[in-house]
Design a protein around this nucleic acid. Structure first.
Length: 491
RNA sequence: GACCUCGUAGCUCAGCUGGAUAGAGCAUCGGAUUCCUAAUCCGAAGGUCGCGCGUUCGAAUCGCGCCGGGGUCACCA
């Protein structure tokens, strides 16, 4: 403000204080070293808490109405999900949960890359594994193929399901591919289900190529493509890309980019207000191309937002986590879920921005003490429930109590608890979900301290203290729910 | 080489649309329990915010340069 007004911050603060001091919901407004400190009135906080406690489902809600198509995970259906996928999956899920509570109409979509070379490779890998491991034939492995026990398991099932005659020669590989891809998609969905992630739509890449001619014509009409060296190129440089990109190869087959162009063309046809994609960081060079295509269709590329999900490195007891040969030298998401549980996995992914590297030690998340934030927060929540149990009261019975006699610390705690809606909104809008985990840890910490300093049961302010506790528990519970974690009532 | 990203306490990281004495958790050390769960709490110690220059009344934050770690730069998906 000082900059805009070009005046001394101290003076501005003084004047603001005079004005704001007249508002009723503020208890005290003061100027300090150029800052304006505002204190909300006790009555206001108390009434807000009463309302929140009586309307748990409404607390933290807002009325944003934008519709958003959120595409995430979209892992290739050629194997189980690994730990890197898990990060994007959790991130997308939580973004959707928070956004939905804020009123955004969010639909979750999985783009299934069920076309192209990789699916053929999957089929080939299963075909070869079946011949070698199941049928006992000599096999020559090519340079590139999928490895790991899951391929062998898949091969066994494939022979059962499809019959050994399908493995007589390579001509059947396309059918094997198709079958294997469907199984892998089922496996991926099982992996996601273990952490409570579900989708509204699945879009098949393969199905999009039917629309390619139509979309290509649109591009041509827009002057977005040209022919050179027998190939068709997208003029993506016109919209900020480093170089133009091939969309149709010499032999007439469209490239992967063509599929994504059709996909995004159709996305925009579906008419959402905003489109968010969560991609692995290795796709970062891809953003400019897709945005360029969107721009050529006459849409605002700003409506398409790409969130990158960076690499994850795991430690176990300080040492690099061993990758499992079984999985084909990846760390499987399902292995980590088994080891530390869905809650801890979710939490740790949400403690850092999505686009920076994340390293964590699985041993730390297995500990059942304060080094494990999930326990720490849950313990605070459980303590509240324990108090009500000991007092033999229902929470509703104290919602009407007045908090007026409580001390300053109590109101600081109350204020923080009531901050949840602002935290959720800020976290969502800035796409910085770590703000929620940080807030919850902080709120839990404040409560633990408060609990230690203040005896609740038997106090003359028992009802008020119980009400305050219930409010803290409410914020913790709703906050955890936004992270996809169910708050513990007993530990 | 180009682009992206990171560099803050021993470790993992917040803070970064410029502002109050730079924060948290873990690890370390010391302490708290006749009392609602000690799965907790309190205290101590720990920092040239990678380096330099610049913009500014003011820089961890913005700009430029450099150093160092990671990543990406397909007619593969």
């Amino acid at each position: 403000m000082a900059k805009v007004l070009r005046r001394n911050p101290m003076q501005i603060a003084e004047e603001l204080v005079e004005k704001l001091g007249e508002e009723e919901i503020f208890e005290r407004v003061e100027a300090l070293k150029g800052y304006v400190n505002i204190k909300l009135s006790r009555n206001f906080l108390d009434e807000y808490a009463t309302w929140a406690l009586n309307n748990e489902d409404e607390f933290g809600k807002a009325d944003f109405e934008e519709s958003i198509l959120l595409e995430f995970v979209s892992a290739n259906p050629t194997g189980p999900l690994h730990i890197g996928h898990a990060r994007g999956a959790v991130w997308g899920d939580v973004l959707a949960r928070i956004g939905s509570r804020l009123g955004y109409r969010i639909e979750r979509e999985y783009y299934v890359n069920d076309a192209g070379n990789q699916i053929y490779l999957l089929g080939l890998s299963v075909y070869l594994a079946a011949r070698e491991q199941v049928l006992g034939l000599e096999v020559e492995w090519p340079e590139e193929y999928y490895r790991g026990d899951y391929i062998v398991e898949l091969a066994k099932k494939a022979v059962e399901a499809l019959g050994p005659e399908m493995f007589a020669d390579e001509g059947f590989i396309p059918q094997i591919s198709e079958w294997a891809k469907d199984r892998m998609l089922e496996l991926i969905n099982e992996n996601l289900d273990e952490v409570g992630i579900h989708f509204d739509h699945y879009v098949s890449e393969k199905s999009l190529y039917d629309r390619w001619d139509e979309v290509f014509t649109k591009l041509a009409d827009a002057g977005a493509v040209y022919e050179k060296d027998g190939k068709w190129w997208l003029k993506s440089t016109e919209h900020g890309d480093e170089k133009d990109r091939v969309v149709v190869r010499e032999d007439g087959r469209p490239t992967y980019l063509a599929g994504d162009i059709v996909y995004h063309y159709l996305k925009f046809e579906r008419g959402y207000d905003r489109y968010i994609n969560i991609w692995g960081a290795d796709h970062h060079g891809y953003i400019a191309r897709v945005k360029a295509a969107v721009a050529f269709f006459g849409h605002d590329p700003q409506k398409l937002e790409i969130i990158l999900s960076q690499m994850v490195s795991l430690l176990k007891g300080g040492e690099p986590y061993k990758m499992s040969k079984r999985a084909g030298n990846f760390i499987l998401m399902s292995d980590i879920v088994k080891e530390i549980g869905s809650d801890a996995l979710r939490f740790v992914f949400l403690t850092k921005k999505s686009d920076t590297h994340l390293e964590f030690d699985v041993e730390d998340l297995k500990k059942e003490d304060n080094s494990n934030p999930v326990y720490y927060i849950n313990y605070a929540h459980a303590r509240v429930f324990s108090l009500f149990e000991k007092a033999n009261r229902k929470q509703e019975s104290v919602f009407g109590a007045s908090l007026n006699n409580l001390n300053e610390d109590a109101f600081d705690l109350l204020f923080t608890a009531l901050l949840l809606p602002e935290v959720l909104e800020d976290a969502f809008k800035s796409r910085q979900l770590q703000k929620v985990t940080e807030y919850l840890r902080n709120l839990a910490g404040m409560y633990h301290k408060f609990y230690y300093d203040n005896r609740v049961l038997g106090s003359e302010n028992e009802e008020a203290l119980l009400k305050l506790s219930a409010m803290v528990a409410l914020s913790l519970r709703v906050g955890l729910e936004m992270l996809g974690i169910e708050a513990a009532k007993k530990m």
